[in-house]
Design a protein around this nucleic acid. Structure first.
Lengths: 194, 194
DNA sequence: CACATTCTGTAACGACCGGTACATATTCGA
DNA sequence: TCGAATATGTACCGGTCGTTACAGAATGTG
């Protein structure tokens, strides 16, 4: 049983929603701004995505597998050091692309604001931990391959990389230039063994 | 000409307001939660502090010179490396103190949310640049003192330290333990010459 | 005492928030 | 062709936001 066909494309609408959540964070993105950017009515949004939280879940998934996916390319690196370099460079490139809003959508949404968005923060916390674990495992493997020294703590190194990436996001929001972000990434690489 | 005396202490009220803005960020902190925490009525708040933005300006000043002042102690260090270590350690301690909310009040408020808080973001941007400049000048001096190698870029090093501090704040909000934050700070020190 | 001045509490303002009834339009299967 | 099913547009819900009129209470000065 099929009814009236949808008059917009889900993925195009999600892409527009990504831009809004990226700029505003979860709570800062209002339904009015979202519907305006997506080109659909409130009712269509709720019919297609459930509610604001459901929409954000799909937006977050698209964000991570789309513009903000620097993990895939990094995992193809041969060495741990090159892996780390690609992660940091990916963050620098992400925040330097003039087509993207400043900052990181996940960071913006996880930090702000009220107690309504506890579930969203929790949801993003899961994604964050997953990302850190992927990085840690890559460094763990490098250790068994003797690609990293035996006294190196893969978990600490992974968290350090992530911390720098978060720092890049914050500085990007503050208006840092590409050169400044690049300097931070280069400095961070001095702490990576190899 | 003096009228009816104020029935609360400005500084005590500001301290309570710091806690709320720290937890919620600028936009996430509602007047209702602020007045409840400060123990005063809406009218008294507006009479004493102007409006929400004026209150936040005074709160931000008190935040930087109060709990979040790790700069003063750091500047007393003898070497550039010890200076950097104290900055990072100050951030770790700040985010590990169980009396403080998680994260950094400035970061929380600068990232969120809507277009209403552009002026607050701008105000915080000024403070942030000021802090980075103080760090850079200390490293610059260390360079002339031959305390840092001549090929070291003080601005890049300052921005790197700040980036890591921002990263610590983000990870603190995400629920990182003191040990995890300490590991990040220790890793970052490997990138500091000396 | 009266008066200006300042602070306090009550109660409300318009604007926006996320979310939703409701009727209408458009498709498919029977 | 007729209903079941899905999408759409209008118009609205209760709630919260930051902000403010307004009147009363407490001070100093004359």
């Amino acid at each position: 049983m099929a009814g009236r066909p949808r008059e917009f494309e889900i993925d195009k609408a999600l892409d527009q929603a990504v831009q809004v959540f990226w700029k505003r964070g979860y709570e800062g993105a209002s339904l009015s701004e979202l519907t305006r950017a997506m080109g659909i009515s409130r009712t269509s949004l709720y019919a297609a995505f459930g509610d604001k939280e459901g929409l954000f879940a799909q937006v977050a998934a698209r964000y991570e597998t789309g513009r903000a996916d620097y993990m895939t390319h990094a995992l193809e690196a041969q060495t741990a050091r090159e892996f780390a370099r690609r992660l940091l460079q990916g963050a620098v490139d992400l925040h330097s692309d003039p087509d993207n809003p400043h900052g990181c959508m996940v960071v913006q949404s996880a930090l702000a604001c009220g107690p309504d968005s506890d579930s969203v923060r929790h949801q993003l916390g899961m994604r964050r931990r997953g990302g850190e674990e992927t990085i840690r495992q890559r460094f763990e493997q490098a250790k068994t391959d003797a690609d990293l020294p035996s006294d190196c703590d893969p978990g600490a190194l992974a968290r350090f990389i992530k911390a720098v990436i978060y720092g890049l996001a914050v500085q990007s929001v503050g208006g840092a230039t590409r050169e400044e972000l690049q300097q931070v990434a280069d400095m961070a690489m001095r702490a990576v063994p190899g």
